[in-house]
Simulated assay, not measured.
Amino acid sequence: MEETSSPLEAVLSPSIADVSVLSLDVSREAIRIDVCSTAAGAACPDCGSESTRVHSSYQRFPADVPNGGRLMILRLRVRRFFCPESSCARRPFAEQLPELTRRHSRWTERLLSTLAAVGLALAGRAGARLARAFGMPISRSAVLRLLDALPEPEVPVPRVVDVDEYATRKGRIYGTVLVDVETRRPVDLLPDRMAQHRRGC
């Protein structure tokens, strides 16, 4: 966000382009921040045309990470613009602030990343308990949905692979596991231990 007169505003509002803090109110229970975009216009999400013609505005209240034991109440003023392209099916559209929040989301990007980190460390039930203890109420299923929406991490191609067996029913049903020798992480599981699978590795 832009530089503000209060050091507290700078701490609560990380540097985000074209966003300004209008007001800040701190009480014992909560911190209330009014925020708006300072951009001259916005791009239509369908055709990409830039528009500066404001149609209307409305307010969003995305949840944010608590600060110092206080609730963070963010009031975001969002403008709707007319699309200048006559052939575009989306006439009015809402501006987006991708570094602050995302479309249709009830949470800020900062809260989303925090909850996702808690979920990666503790999974659903334990992650939800810890999040609630820190003032970020969320259900176990919501934590799991956040994790499911995360992009798959890029895994380097293993240079050296080891082949071993694993048992789904000990002494009766076996499969083959491929392991990256350098990282000691499983690469793939094969449903059986047939020789042709191993020769193809």
Results as ranks from 00 to 15, higher is better:
1 M>T: 12
2 E>T: 09
2 E>F: 04
6 S>D: 15
6 S>K: 10
7 P>I: 09
7 P>Y: 03
12 L>P: 02
15 S>K: 14
15 S>N: 13
21 V>N: 07
22 L>V: 15
34 D>T: 13
39 A>C: 00
40 A>F: 02
42 A>P: 01
42 A>I: 03
43 A>Y: 08
43 A>P: 00
44 C>R: 01
45 P>E: 02
48 G>H: 04
48 G>N: 05
50 E>N: 09
53 R>C: 09
54 V>W: 01
54 V>P: 04
54 V>C: 08
59 Q>Y: 11
62 P>Q: 08
63 A>M: 08
72 M>T: 10
73 I>L: 15
75 R>Q: 13
75 R>M: 12
76 L>Y: 05
78 V>C: 09
79 R>A: 06
79 R>T: 04
79 R>N: 02
80 R>F: 00
82 F>M: 11
84 P>T: 03
87 S>R: 08
89 A>E: 11
92 P>R: 04
94 A>M: 10
95 E>Q: 06
97 L>Y: 01
100 L>I: 08
100 L>T: 08
106 R>Y: 06
106 R>D: 13
109 E>W: 00
115 L>W: 03
116 A>K: 08
117 A>V: 10
117 A>D: 15
120 L>V: 11
121 A>E: 13
122 L>K: 08
123 A>Y: 05
123 A>R: 15
124 G>Y: 07
129 R>D: 14
130 L>Y: 04
134 F>S: 13
135 G>K: 04
136 M>W: 02
138 I>W: 01
138 I>T: 14
138 I>P: 01
140 R>Y: 02
149 A>V: 07
149 A>F: 07
150 L>R: 09
151 P>G: 13
154 E>K: 07
155 V>E: 09
156 P>Y: 00
157 V>E: 15
160 V>F: 06
162 D>G: 15
162 D>Q: 12
165 E>I: 05
166 Y>T: 04
168 T>G: 05
169 R>K: 14
170 K>M: 06
172 R>Y: 12
174 Y>E: 02
174 Y>S: 03
174 Y>F: 11
176 T>M: 02
180 D>F: 00
186 P>H: 04
186 P>N: 06
186 P>E: 07
191 P>G: 10
191 P>Y: 01
194 M>E: 15
196 Q>P: 13
197 H>Q: 12
198 R>G: 08
198 R>M: 12
199 R>M: 13
200 G>L: 12
200 G>R: 14
201 C>H: 09
